[in-house]
Design a protein around this nucleic acid. Structure first.
Lengths: 220, 220
DNA sequence: GATGTAATTTTGATTAGTCAAAATGAGTAA
DNA sequence: TTACTCATTTTGACTAATCAAAATTACATC
């Protein structure tokens, strides 16, 4: 029933909310995240409010209602299952599946989604380590440290990569910074704003803090 | 680049053209096939003409240009490969894949399509026996007889079923009238407007001529 | 040739989604 | 308070796609 456009707005709002205290998202950041002019976002938010998918207080901000969040998570589930499917079944590279899933997430029926889920053996994460919401809309919330903050010298395993940019993902792949890989942070240099990690037998890799912050790890 | 709507109009026009002498399609039948009001079809045809996807003479009819046909065949290829994929890989029933493919045909990229084609081993027909156009836009044109006109008593094999309706397809399945099945026409009764066929060890099945005309067979 | 019918085209309106630019308002600095 | 800045909202306009209903036209029939 909701249009592709509406699904997109809700998904973006959900993702923004995750990074916002009190879940309240400003119009400006919302418009930017969706990629439309500010006025367009205001207009859409009003129609979303009419459909009871968001709460909105003029000049305060927007927030998903329960119904809106449910829908957003449904879209996110489709997106991530599709990504996993494209990598596991069709053999695409993890760096190229995001834009494909961005389209397919609006075209997959519940029936097809269920089959994909089954075929994949009910995966819990997508190729980037992002958790796949359950059909009921539950998301595993792991609290993961990033390479920019985790303990030095401890054996760690990459769990999630927080960037969908194709070039970034190819770089991460070449550097061995992909989910499942074991590594240790060798050193961190605040002045150089850099982190050096070593994954197994590979050469050590040094990346800037902003990149390190996008690689989430868990203890192993 | 072309919208989902445009893709749909072109695909429908292609399919109508196949049943029309001189490939010229009337506005009325075009509008009906797409499922819009006549005026809507007229308007769309004009914009398609501006894009050089159709030729159009007022009150005469519409016809695809080469560019239009190429695009239509591309959509048809996506549709049929997706149907085959849904049945072969995801295990959906042939009676339920048409509406799914109707949506997915507009959401599949060339890259994903190529992977699907490969995974399926470059199939030549979809689950209903409809030929899958090649990437270059060539369609195998077999000249198949239907159960309403083929020779009586000769061993035949079902090649194609010309109806996408879910109920019809379930009926065909139950009656053993699916592509690949071997059968013979036992008798044809013009007065009763009926055709009786026997498939292997099964009980003979009698169907009306209008149904028989939808089941295409080839000599075996 | 005149007329009637039915298909087709035109017209006027609507909805969803969008932008640019003007107007508004809330908070900060003076 | 007053003024200023910047985010937000409003306004006016546009495009794609649609419909209903009025106007047109081609064709068959008389």
């Amino acid at each position: 029933m909701p249009s592709t456009t509406v699904e997109d707005y809700l998904k973006r709002l959900y993702m923004l909310q995750q990074q916002t205290e009190r879940r309240l998202v400003s119009m400006g950041s919302f418009a930017a995240a969706v990629g439309v002019a500010p006025g367009t976002a205001t207009a859409m938010v009003k129609t979303l409010e009419d459909s009871r998918l968001v709460e909105y207080e003029s000049r305060q901000g927007v927030r998903l209602t329960d119904a809106g969040e449910r829908l957003a998570l449904h879209v996110l589930r489709r997106h991530r299952l599709v990504e996993q499917f494209l990598v596991e079944v069709l053999g695409l590279d993890w760096s190229e599946v995001h834009p494909e899933a961005e389209v397919l997430e609006h075209a997959i029926s519940d029936k097809v989604l269920a089959r994909i889920d089954e075929l994949l053996g009910h995966p819990e994460v997508d190729p980037h380590g992002d958790p796949i919401p359950t059909p009921a809309g539950d998301v595993a919330d792991r609290t993961l440290a990033s390479l920019a903050e985790c303990e030095i010298g401890q054996p760690m395993r990459v769990a999630q990569v927080l960037d969908q940019d194709e070039r970034f993902l190819r770089f991460a792949d070449e550097s061995g910074l992909t989910p499942g890989i074991d590594l240790t942070v060798e050193s961190r240099d605040d002045v150089a704003d850099a982190v050096t990690v070593r994954a197994g037998e590979r050469d050590a890799v040094t990346v800037g803090t902003s990149v390190a912050a996008k690689i989430l790890v868990e203890g192993v």
